[in-house]
Simulated assay, not measured.
Amino acid sequence: MNKTVLITGTSSGLGRATAKLFHGKGWNVIATMRSPERESELTKLERSLVVRLDVQDHDSIEPAVAAGIARFGRIDALVNNAGYGAYGPLEATPSEKIRRQFDVNVLGLLATTQALLPHFRANRTGTIVNVASVGGRVAFPLGTLYHGTKFAIEGLSEALQYELAPIGVRVKIVEPGFMNTDFGGRSLDFSNDSALTEYQPLIKSVLDVLGPMSAHGSVPEAVAEVVYAAATDKSDRLRFEAGADALHLLATRRASDDASFFAGVKAQFGLA
């Protein structure tokens, strides 16, 4: 019998690439998104169910899970992919953006996971793949909110693996580096206030550095391969790094003490 995966945030980017990859591997795919009525590609695939799930609307989660189980009989894996990045000086960031960053990246992930746990526990099996980031292990300037949420995903996943292992449920973390997306456009929620002149040189430096890094990042399809590898891994391995830049940066971080690594980041962003 085909296995079934539920993936959040499949309207674009990594989520869409992951949905298409799992489908190509023979899985049933529950592709969730905020506006399924706008979807025209995934709805045409056999063994695919496109359903509304907005991680900020917790009332939408249980019906999406129930619809997936009703359609395919069971769910074998959950990929918590939905998320976005809020950057900018904390002083310039409205409180609603702070809440949204944590609502989407952390609280929404937890709510979706909670909704699947009774099903996984009853089946005594299941895999949860949480898409974190290289930014959950290292931090860059102006990423207070984004890095805060990705560090949170790392911690909650590491703790969760212990409590779920006895009931047969695995937890995995995928840590992508930069992906080839529109950095500074739709993929980034950047806050700024030009009246805060003291921050403007750093803002320019961050955009000048991170923009090209994003442009030369991994394509979503390559990262989706790592997500699939994590979802199908039967070992106790927790973390899966994705992308050449992630491998390099995390190796550098492991080899460096705090002072050395922080000095390198400061130099990179003109803060030395």
Rank of each mutant, 00 (worst) to 15 (best):
I128W: 04
A165C: 09
K204I: 15
G211I: 12
K234F: 10
V223N: 01
V138R: 00
T10H: 11
N80S: 08
F102D: 06
R137E: 07
E163V: 07
A82S: 08
L207M: 15
E154R: 00
F151C: 04
A70T: 13
T252R: 13
R239S: 08
G143K: 00
E41A: 14
I75E: 02
L249G: 04
V171Q: 03
A111P: 01
A165T: 13
G68E: 03
A263K: 13
R38V: 14
L188D: 09
L109M: 09
A132V: 12
K234T: 15
A195G: 15
S12V: 14
A67K: 13
L42P: 00
K234L: 15
R254S: 14
Y87Q: 15
G73M: 05
F102N: 07
G88L: 07
T125W: 13
T112P: 02
Y199R: 10
N81A: 00
R124L: 12
D182M: 01
L116C: 01
G185N: 10
I75N: 01
D258M: 10
D189M: 12
A215G: 14
V104S: 02
G264L: 06
A152I: 05
I128R: 04
R47C: 06
I203D: 02
Q161T: 10
L156M: 11
D57T: 13
M1S: 13
K44D: 13
V226M: 04
A230N: 02
R16V: 04
D54V: 08
A122M: 08
S256D: 12
D245W: 14
S260F: 07
G135D: 00
R137T: 06
R124F: 10
Y228K: 04
A251C: 06
L49F: 01
R253W: 08
R237Y: 06
V206S: 07
P166E: 08
R47V: 03
T181D: 13
T112E: 02
N2F: 12
A31H: 01
